[in-house]
């Protein structure tokens, strides 16, 4: 074990129907991948409120992985497209906040793609490792105060993610 290696902490949001099952499948098939990702199960990638991502980053995550069903395969018909457009806007917002857009990644993984889930996870850990720890919003001592994190969670009004893209 190399103590000098930066080990990022990553929060992964998974869809109950595809990517969470892909993670299950990776497990059943005993595929090994980087242990840095901790998963939150949602019913759909469409449930992903961008503030969840900001919350995770504010609370100490170095990166966030969002996973959903392949376009056209959503169990709720088309909600993953909504996740996609939120993701694209979110990246712009993060850039505006001075956070590397690469800290958030969107991956499509069907329930059958355990191998893809494992590979993408490991790859993402490497990408975050290259970016280094997220220093955003942290005061000199380290972590951000809770009041601040509450505020920062809502600097972006969630509706802006819908309004801008709803024709």
């Amino acid at each position: 074990m190399d103590n000098n290696t930066f080990e990022p902490t990553i929060i992964g949001f998974t869809c109950n129907w595809c990517s969470y099952r892909a993670a299950d499948l990776a497990g059943t098939a005993r595929m090994k991948y980087a242990p840095n990702v901790r998963l939150v199960r949602l019913m759909c990638s469409g449930r992903l409120d961008p503030t969840f991502v900001l919350r995770a980053l504010a609370q100490g995550a170095d990166g966030v992985m969002i996973t959903g069903c392949h376009p056209g395969e959503c169990h709720y018909l088309e909600q993953n497209y909504k996740a996609l457009r939120r993701f694209l806007l979110l990246k712009r917002v993060l850039a505006g906040l001075g956070i590397e857009a690469g800290r958030v990644k969107l991956v499509w993984a069907s329930a059958a793609e355990g191998a893809k889930f494992a590979a993408e996870t490991t790859a993402f850990v490497e990408e975050i490792r290259k970016l280094g720890p997220l220093a955003w919003g942290k005061d000199e001592g380290g972590r951000m105060k809770d009041e601040e994190s509450e505020n920062s969670s809502f600097i972006i009004h969630p509706s802006s993610f819908e309004k801008e893209v709803t024709p």
Binding site: I11, V40, C44, R47, Q59, P158, S159, F161, E162
Partner: peptide, 30 residues
């Protein structure tokens, strides 16, 4: 699916089983 919950600008929509409070708490816990 919860897409509307994530989208509501007023935070007026809540989703049982996967509420904002549950998910935020889980993130903090993780």
């Amino acid at each position: 699916c919860g897409t509307c919950v994530a989208a509501c600008p007023a935070g007026a929509i809540s989703g049982t089983g996967f509420s904002d409070e549950q998910i935020m708490a889980q993130i903090d816990g993780l």
